[in-house]
Structures are given as structure tokens and as C-alpha cells.
Design a protein around this nucleic acid. Sequence first.
DNA 1: ACGTTTGCCTGCTAGC
DNA 2: TGCTAGCAGGCAAACG
Length: 301
Amino acid sequence: MPELPEVEVVRAGLEPAVVGSTIAGVEVLDGRALTRHVGSHDDFTARLSGRAVTAAVRRGKFLWLLLESAAIEPAEALIGHLGMSGQLLLRAPGAPRERHERVRLAIDHPAHGELAVVFADQRTFGSLAVDALVPTADGAPGGWGSDAPLVASQAAHIARDPLDPAFDDAAFARGLGRRASAIKRVLLDQTVVSGIGNIYADEALWAARIHPETPASALSTRAVRTLLVEIRAVLQKALAEGGTSFDAQYVNVNGQAGYFAHSLNAYGRHGQPCPRCGGAIRREAFMNRSSHYCPRCQRKR
DNA sequence: ACGTTTGCCTGCTAGC
DNA sequence: TGCTAGCAGGCAAACG
């Protein structure tokens, strides 16, 4: 389940291979991978063919490759979202098809030669699109990986993520204060703060000792500050460990799993002892998914 | 056969 | 009356 740390691992892995390369060929094996592309599959292919890649950028869980744009205005990007099970893999040219392979790009790099960039996705919630770039609202860089104050239009409504230097802590606190919804739902709302999914929401709330159903507006200033500190800590630790992998669904660009699953304190640990107090971690249905928390050290209200 | 997982969309309400 | 923001529920798809 790729969230910010997993997507950043993918971006960082892609960056040295694709920046400076030219897209030499595009194969669309399954059109469902292009559901977010406005235009036909042929249009997608035509817009990418021959284009040079100048940067690999990420905001929250969105990833985009800036495309060189001598004559094209506004400038464009190849934007991707991995959804639940999407993978971007670097392979040798002519490498055998991946299981659930949807799109393959052939790239040519002046220093590294030819390479295949493969988009594979079991559940097809992920997608790729060629998208126009728009100026950022605050004039700051669009995301990690580029200084350009541009963001892919499909990611323009997505808030900055908590590891973004331009993330506005005060605006985050004001946003929580306006919302009566459960804090967990608000953390999962990518227009409030991006990059957090079910795993890191549960982990950050556990670390901050906040019950997932606490109304966001009921949190004290101090609790909000603690929560933000813990969100950043868990995201950074997961990033350092290469992300969280439970199965083959999340891997880096070389197909390798991450190690953060060993560091989880709450997520997926229902019935096991809370590492802090020894009480049993509880799992509850919430928003069509599961919340994992310690009822003893994350008291409601 | 059903539960699991994700972001996003839709339709509703409240308030200015 | 019309707009916006907040809100909650439900959807898509594949796999075990």
C-alpha cells in the first residue's frame, strides 16, 4: 500500500535513471492504466514519444516526470498514482513481461543507455496520464525533486505533505480546528495533508496517543503539535527503512521490499500487545477499512 | 462468497 | 438564491 515513504523510495529510485533520458517508445498493454489520461491511448503515446525527462517530482502519493517543453505551452508532465498496488520498475530493454504489466516505456539515457520503465498494477487503481503543469498557489516548488514552482494539474488540489519544506504547520492546525470529523478521517483527506494512508495514520495516532475517532477540532494545540511531530517521525523512519511491505504489492524500482513492517507498533497488530503498555491492540472497522489502536493508551476524548 | 485495500466522486446540509 | 466548505457513504477491481 504505497504511501508517502513508499512513493518517495520509488521516486528516488527512478530519478537517476530517467532524468536526462528520452522516451523512445510507449506500449499500452491495458487501457485501464490510463483512466486519468484525458485523450485516447494514441494521444498518450504520441505526447510522450521523443520527449526528454528533466525531473522526477513527488507530492504526497503523486509522482510526476517533468517533460522538456521547447515548444509546448503549458509545459507537461507524465503523472502517476500507484493506487493500492501499482509498481514502477526499471528493467533491461526487452525484459520479460511483469505480472500485471500495464504500460511500458522504453527510455534512452545518454550515459546509461537503454532501459525499460514498467508500470505494473494488480488491482488497477493506479494510473498514468500526460498532464499540464500549473503554477503552485504559494510560489514554492511543486514537490520533492524539482525547484520549479509547477505542479501537475491533477495534483494541484492535493495539499503539501508533512516532509515538504513549504508545508504550512499553522494552516494544518487551522484545518483540523475547522473539522468535526474523526482525526483519522482528516489525516486521510489528501486536501488537508497529503502522503498519509491507513498504515501511517494508525502509526502516528498510536505514537501521539490519540484515539482515531477523536474529533479533529477537539484536539488541543499541544496535541496537534505532538501529532505533527509523530507524523513526520514515522514517515521519516519508514523512508529510511525503504517503506512498508507486507507482500509483493509494494516494492522499489528494483523489485525489492522495504523493511518498515518490522517497526510497526499498531497497524496489523490486532490482538498483540501494545509495545508501550502491554494492552491488546484493537482493530475496528472504520471508513471501509480498519483502524488499529491501543484502547488503553489512546483514550477516546 | 466475502472481506480487504485506495483515492475520489456524489449528493447532501449548513452558513454566509 | 447561489456559492462554498464540510461531511459521510459508496464506488471501482482483483485476489485469496
